[in-house]
Simulated assay, not measured.
Amino acid sequence: MATAAFEELVEDFEFLDEWEDRYRHVIEQGKAMDALPEALRVPATKVDGCASQVWLHAQFDAGKLHFDGASDAMIVSGLIAVLRSLYNGLTPAEVLAVDARAEMARLGLNDHLSAQRSNGLRAMIERICETAAAA
C-alpha cells in the first residue's frame, strides 16, 4: 500500500535509468522540503542509529500522520522526503501496514545505499512506526 505521492515518485524513478540520476532526484526531493524549525531539532525528535544528524517531528491531524524532518546530509534529507511521500496522510493502522522495505525496493534504494545509510533509513522507518503505534 502506498500513497498517491509515493506512486508518483515511483513513476518518476521509472524514467530515470541511471542510479546517479535517481540519487540526484532523491537529493532534489530533500532540497524541496520546507526547513524544519530549529525549535524542533531537539533530543526528543533526534533519530538514533543514523550516521548523520536526523530529526523527525511527527503529529497526527484528523487521525492522519504528518511529519517533517531534517538532516545535515543532503541524501538523508532526500530519504526523509521519500518517507514523507510514503507515509504522510496515512492513519496509524495504515502506517503500520506499509511494507517499507518492499516499497523502497520499488525505487531501487535497497541495492544502492551504503550500509550506514540503510541503517539510518531503517531507524527512521522504525521511529515513524513507533510513533504510529503509540497514537
Rank of each mutant, 00 (worst) to 15 (best):
G89D: 11
N119Q: 10
G120W: 00
A39G: 04
G63E: 05
G49P: 07
Q29W: 07
M1T: 15
P43V: 00
E18C: 07
D48R: 09
A35K: 06
A4C: 08
A70F: 08
R106K: 15
A5T: 15
V42D: 13
Y23H: 12
P92D: 07
R101S: 15
L56M: 06
A73V: 00
A32M: 11
M74R: 11
R84L: 14
K46S: 09
E20P: 11
H112D: 02
E7W: 08
L16P: 06
S77L: 10
R127S: 04
Q53S: 10
V76G: 01
G30K: 00
L16Y: 04
A39K: 04
L121G: 01
E11N: 13
R122Q: 11
T3C: 11
D34R: 06
A105R: 07
E103Y: 03
L40Q: 08
S77C: 12
A70V: 10
P43Y: 00
A51E: 08
R127C: 03
G49H: 04
G108W: 03
P37T: 03
G49Y: 03
Q29M: 13
A35G: 07
A4T: 14
D34H: 06
K31N: 07
A70M: 08
H25R: 08
A39F: 06
E28I: 09
R84P: 13
M1D: 12
Y23E: 09
A2H: 15
S114W: 02
C129W: 10
A115K: 15
V98F: 02
L79E: 04
R117S: 09
C129D: 05
A115C: 11
Q53C: 12
E103L: 03
A132G: 01
A93Q: 09
A62T: 12
V26L: 04
Q59P: 12
R106Q: 07
E7R: 13
A135H: 06
R84I: 15
V42K: 05
L83I: 11
R122C: 06
L16R: 10
L96P: 03
A2E: 09
P43S: 00
L65F: 05
K31D: 07
I27T: 05
C129F: 10
W19S: 08
A39L: 06
D12E: 14
L9I: 03
A81Q: 01
A4E: 14
H112E: 03
P37Q: 03
R106D: 04
P92H: 06
R24S: 13
L109S: 00
E28N: 14
P37N: 05
F60V: 12
L36W: 02
E130I: 08
F13Y: 14
L36P: 00
P37A: 04
V76P: 00
R122V: 06
S71E: 02
V54R: 02
V82M: 00
K64G: 10
A123Y: 01
A73L: 00
E11L: 12
K31S: 15
W19E: 08
L107Y: 05
N119I: 04
D48F: 09
E7I: 15
F67H: 03
P92A: 08
I75N: 00
M104S: 09
L40S: 05
A97W: 06
A102W: 05
A2T: 10
G78Q: 02
E8N: 13
A2C: 09
A135Q: 05
A123V: 01
V54M: 02
G120Y: 01
T3F: 05
A51C: 07
E20Y: 07
L90F: 04
L90G: 02
A115H: 11
R122T: 10
L113N: 04
S118A: 13
